[in-house]
Amino acid sequence: MEFANVEPLVGVIIPTYNCDRYIEQAIESVLQQEGCTYEIIVIDDGSTDSTEKILAPYTERYSDRFRYIRQKNQGVAAARNHGIAVARADLIAFLDADDYFLPGKLARQAEILTKRPDLGIVHSGWQRVDMQGNKLLDVCPWEQIPELDLENWLRWKPVLPSAMMFRREWLQYVGGFDKRFPPAEDTDLVLKLALHGCKTTWLRQITVGYRQHGESAMHKGLPQARSLCAVTDNFFAQPNLPGNVRLMEQSVRYGTLVWIAWYLHHTGHHQETTEYLQQAWEYRPHSGMETVINWIESFAEFARNWGVEFDVNNLTSSEEWQELIQWIIQTTSIGGQNTELII
């Protein structure tokens, strides 16, 4: 496709920081996209590895569609916002430097947004892959969440920027990503957009390879947990929330804290797992024993959705879990019940 002197339909913003191992695959996956014009904007957030050297040939060879911009290290939110500010296209696709697009991603999402001016976001599915790009699991969130309205964003938070495409004017309207909430600034953004009336639909297709490795944001257990709590606190601190949303606060907080607890268990933070379950206890919708059973069932479901094994005995036989059960027994009337099922 000829790009010279043609305004791009889609701006692909790739924030990167010391990701020279994967950045080429990310860029090549964009260059292989067909069916729409695009620009590639790489925002290098102060990398100290060989990123600049690797990308130099792209700047020369694809000068009609490729820009490489370095900035002082400020975090991924600032890098993405920088990309939004300099983009020429009306539609924006984000691509983390360790992810990659699958064929047809840009054209199919852009087609939906072009035909549907009422929409601000098109979301899609993704494929979890390992460090080498080998498939681990297909994730099709629409099977569980067919409608992406504010209530479902709050309850489920199926956010992955690399799988999404945004209308640029909506991103500008809400001020882009908030630097206060790394690494959950993407969840904060989507909640802001939905609260302001931005509509989302699904492209029911796997469009992205989402790489799982030790340095990815989703493997940073404690920062992710604290950030997601901060985003939830910030959202419900707003004074003029719709009444139906305000009524959801207790259940949203409970569900969020239980998911965080599972995530911390999954990433090896066992003491913090029980601390977040103690917080979830304050918002429980069930009786004491039912709540503990719900935790175990939720952990099993989250693990299944994540494509990993869940060993219930490993959880319930741990010292931290036993201490948690004793805490429950001491602080509630559950001590008078048969606790054999939960110990």
Rank of each mutant, 00 (worst) to 15 (best):
W321H: 04
Q25S: 15
W306F: 12
D44W: 02
V12S: 00
Q144C: 11
R65W: 07
I343C: 13
R168S: 02
I293Q: 14
D90Y: 03
E34Y: 11
N244V: 07
M1Q: 13
E111Y: 09
G125S: 06
E28K: 13
S333N: 12
P117Q: 06
T201N: 02
C140R: 15
S298T: 09
D118H: 06
N18D: 10
N314P: 06
R155A: 13
V208S: 01
Q127E: 14
E28N: 13
E169R: 09
E301P: 05
E28W: 09
E215V: 08
T114F: 09
L241H: 04
R61N: 11
A93W: 01
T200S: 07
I329G: 09
V42S: 02
R304V: 05
E323C: 12
L191S: 04
E282A: 13
E60M: 13
Q322D: 11
V159E: 08
I296C: 09
I54M: 07
L150K: 05
V252A: 04
A79S: 09
Y210D: 10
A225Y: 00
M248C: 09
L148D: 00
N134A: 14
V10R: 00
G35D: 01
S317P: 10
N152F: 03
T331N: 15
Q144H: 14
D118N: 07
H196M: 09
D90R: 09
P15K: 06
L247K: 15
R21A: 13
Q224Y: 10
E297T: 13
G133T: 05
F166T: 02
A194P: 08
R167T: 03
D149Q: 08
Y263R: 13
E169M: 09
A77R: 02
R155L: 14
E7V: 12
W259P: 05
K157S: 14
K105N: 11
K220Y: 03
Q33L: 03
T201H: 00
W321R: 03
L9V: 13
T267G: 07
G335R: 10
A56E: 15
F181G: 04
D233R: 12
Q32Y: 09
A4K: 15
V122Y: 01
A184F: 03
S298L: 04
R304D: 10
W321A: 02
N240T: 10
A237T: 05
C229R: 15
V258E: 02
Q337F: 12
D45L: 01
G133L: 07
I293E: 15
